[in-house]
Amino acid sequence: MGLPFIKEAITQLFSKPSTEKYPLVKKEVSDGFRGKLVFHPELCINCGMCMRVCAPQAITRTIEKTEEGDRITMEFHMGSCTFCSMCADFCSKNSIELSKEYSMVVTNEDDLKVRGSFIKKAPPKKELSPEQLAKLKAAKAAKDGKAEEEFDSCPDA
């Protein structure tokens, strides 16, 4: 029965422990660490790419109509995130980046949500003359009968 670790144990007893004094001494993480997400709403263009690539569906977008335009709120739920960094990679405007903050400890789940909102101004509306309006109305009424489904399927038209 060999006991190879006696020497090791005794040596360690008189040397410095390798424990990091974590809560007292904060620790820097290495490069490339993907921590808590930082969102720069001023860069976002509301393309929705991040939502499409997010596997855990941690990103939600809410759109409110306001006076100045649509108020778009991006909400990144860190509690549901896998930190794959796909959203950041796909963001053409670099409005999403993953910081080095790793300590995400909360008692309330809502505190884990990273939000950012910006206002997407509505495009300036063309002023139409009454005649033009009447023309459009007539055209619409003529169309109504034959192409209701078409209209439904193409709401942008």
Binding site: Q12, L13, P17, T19
Partner: peptide
Amino acid sequence: KIVARMQKRMG
């Protein structure tokens, strides 16, 4: 404590 120190821990 001693066990921890022998295992290179703070304990």
